[in-house]
Amino acid sequence: MDPTDPAGAPPVPGELGAPDDVAHPKRIKTFVRRAGRTTTGQAKAFETLGPRFLQPYTGERLDLEATFGRTAPTVLEIGFGMGEATAHIANVKPDTDFLCCEVHEPGVGALLKRIGEQGQTNIRIVQHDAVDVLDHMLADDSLAGVHIFFPDPWHKKRHSKRRLIQPPLVRKLALHLKAGGYIHCATDWQPYARQMLEVLSAETLLANTATGADGYAAKPDYRPLTKFENRGIKLGHGVWDLVFTRRAAEAA
């Protein structure tokens, strides 16, 4: 999901990014197939660290305590790009476990490499579509949070329905949150920020944490400024954070 990733691979019919003459996919996937080479260091990280930190997609319910070897709040991250923000957040929140979904192999390799360099133990990676992970591997009321940072904005108006943040997925995410759990989205594309705000606000299971009149949250301290984001800020581009929490059952 990181916008700095190369996107040169031709889209596969039926997936996000398929040409306009291809039927619209039946469901929105959480990824786009991207081109990119795995470096020697990333390949070595797959070999040496993959057995410990890669969680295979099994289609069966995941025991989070057994997976991480402890009892701790679990945050699901959808699309971590090259893993820069993921590794940073895992460092500043060592008491939280992070289950991270990404299909871009160089990105997975890059995060594995960071894990090895920083000695992190609270990250596991599922190299698979997050929708399947939600549907088959995670129970309702099991997550402390969800992170979705800079998903593909699909700039063209005719492609806006391909954006990840849509009512069906938001409902699914909300059902997987524990009461008080949160969804944190961030984007640097204002039309998408407005759509995110509209969709998240319409979900009755969620409450907006923003205190400002515009509905957007201040950037939480745990989310770092990426190189891409810093470049954008220097050029005068905006970044919008949205943080919504799961209401208690009686308030939903």
Rank of each mutant, 00 (worst) to 15 (best):
T40D: 06
T187F: 07
V170A: 10
K93Y: 03
A18Q: 13
Q118K: 14
E117I: 05
I89T: 06
A110Q: 10
M137D: 04
T71D: 01
G41N: 12
G215A: 08
L64R: 04
T96G: 03
F68V: 13
P94E: 04
L235R: 13
T209Q: 07
A85D: 00
G107F: 09
T67M: 12
L54E: 01
F46P: 10
Y222F: 12
V108A: 01
G109W: 12
D95P: 00
H237P: 01
A35E: 11
P167Y: 10
Y192M: 03
G14A: 14
K219G: 01
P6C: 09
H184R: 08
K44T: 09
C100K: 05
R231I: 00
G232Q: 05
Y57K: 09
H155W: 01
F149S: 10
L76S: 05
T226L: 13
V126K: 09
T38H: 15
L225P: 04
R247V: 06
L62I: 12
D20R: 11
G14M: 14
Q190W: 07
E250H: 15
Y216Q: 02
G238D: 09
T4C: 10
E77K: 09
I28K: 09
N208H: 11
P6T: 05
V126E: 02
E105C: 04
E77F: 08
M196R: 01
P168T: 07
P10R: 15
D129I: 07
G212Q: 06
A251W: 12
Y192R: 00
L99M: 00
F244P: 14
P51E: 08
F53C: 11
A45H: 07
W189M: 00
G79Q: 03
L169Y: 14
P51F: 11
G181R: 12
I148P: 11
G69H: 00
